[in-house]
C-alpha cells in the first residue's frame, strides 16, 4: 500500500516534470529565431534618441574588471561625469581618488589630460562624436569612455552581428524602471537597460568579454540629464603652465616606423 502510493507519487512527479519539458520543446522548435527583432529595434532606437539630444550630461558609475596574468580578477570602480553637446562638444571626466582623466573635444581638437600626472596629449580632429570615438580608438588606441553610447544603432555599431537578442524583463535601477535586454555575438555578451520613461534613454549596460577565459566585464550605470546649456569653453583645453605634452603611443610608434 505504502509502496504503491510511493510509486504513484513518483509517477506523478515524473509526469509533472515531463509534461512541461515536452511542452517547452514544442513551443520552442530548434529553428526558432534567436534574435528577437524587437530587442534589436529597442537598442537602435535608444541610440537614435540619445544622438538626437541637443545637449546632455551623464553621471555614471563604471566598473571595469581587470584580469591579471595570474588569473586574479580585480574590479575597478570609477565615477564619470560627461557633458555632451553634439556635434562638436564633449567633455568626460573620469575620476577615482588616485586617478583622473579628462577627455575633451571642441570640434577641432581632441585632448586627453591627466590632472594628477600633468600629462596631456592633443590631436586634431573634426567630425561627429560617432566619428570621434571611432577615430580615437582606431588611430590613437584610445577608447573614449562610454563610446558605446555613440555607436549603438549607427553603421559603426551595427547590430547585424548580433546572434542572439531577447528581452529579459523590467528591473529597478534606483527609482527608475528599466527594460532589460540581452544580446550575444561572437566573443561578447552585452546587456542593456533602457528607461521605460518617455525619454527612453539608457539606464545601464554591461559588456562581457567571452574571448578571455576569465570573461571580464565592464558595466556602467547612467543618469542622463537633458536640456543642459554649456559654455563652449567647457570643451576646450587650455593647458596649465605645468602641463607636459606627450604623444599617444600608437601615434609615436607610427612616426618612428615611417
Amino acid at each position: 500500500m505504502t509502496l504503491s502510493r510511493l510509486a504513484a507519487g513518483w509517477l506523478l512527479v515524473a509526469v509533472a516534470f515531463a509534461a512541461p519539458a515536452t511542452a517547452t520543446a514544442q513551443d520552442e522548435p530548434a529553428d526558432a529565431p534567436a534574435v528577437d527583432p524587437a530587442a534589436l529595434k529597442a537598442a537602435s532606437a535608444m541610440g537614435e534618441r540619445l544622438r538626437a539630444l541637443d545637449a546632455f550630461s551623464i553621471e555614471a558609475t563604471l566598473s571595469t574588471e581587470e584580469v591579471l596574468a595570474s588569473g586574479e580578477t580585480l574590479l575597478h570602480l570609477e565615477r564619470l561625469s560627461a557633458d555632451v553637446s553634439p556635434p562638436g562638444g564633449m567633455r568626460m571626466e573620469l575620476r577615482s581618488p588616485g586617478r583622473e582623466r579628462v577627455f575633451l573635444y571642441d570640434g577641432a581638437r581632441a585632448v586627453l589630460w591627466g590632472p594628477i600626472t600633468r600629462y596631456y596629449t592633443a590631436v586634431p580632429f573634426s567630425g561627429t562624436l560617432t566619428a570621434l570615438v571611432q577615430e580615437t580608438a582606431a588611430t590613437y588606441g584610445y577608447d573614449v569612455p562610454l563610446s558605446d553610447l555613440f555607436l549603438w544603432g549607427t553603421d559603426a555599431g551595427d547590430l547585424a552581428r548580433v546572434a542572439q537578442a531577447h528581452y529579459v524583463g523590467a528591473d529597478y535601477l534606483g527609482d527608475r524602471v528599466c527594460d532589460h535586454y540581452a544580446f550575444r555575438q561572437e566573443g561578447v555578451d552585452w546587456q542593456l537597460w533602457i528607461d521605460t520613461a518617455e525619454a527612453g534613454l539608457p539606464c545601464a549596460y554591461r559588456i562581457t568579454d567571452l574571448s578571455d577565459p576569465a570573461q571580464p566585464s565592464f558595466a556602467a550605470t547612467l543618469t542622463i540629464g537633458t536640456g543642459a546649456v554649456f559654455d563652449d569653453r567647457r570643451f576646450t583645453f587650455a593647458a596649465p603652465d605645468d602641463a607636459v605634452a606627450i604623444p599617444f603611443h600608437a601615434e609615436a610608434r607610427r612616426e618612428t616606423e615611417e
Binding site: 574588471e65 581587470e66 584580469v67 596574468a69 586617478r99 600626472t117 570615438v133 573614449v144 555607436l151 555599431g157
Partner: peptide, 27 residues
C-alpha cells in the same frame, strides 16, 4: 603575457587583461 584583447567585439569601453596592476593609480 596576455594583455588587452586584440579585438574589439564592437563596443567602446572594454574589460581588460593586463600583466601588472598599477594603471589605476596616478599617484
Amino acid at each position: 603575457i596576455h594583455t588587452r584583447p586584440a579585438h574589439r567585439p564592437g563596443y567602446g569601453y572594454r574589460p581588460r587583461r593586463v600583466d601588472v596592476h598599477h594603471h589605476y593609480n596616478d599617484r
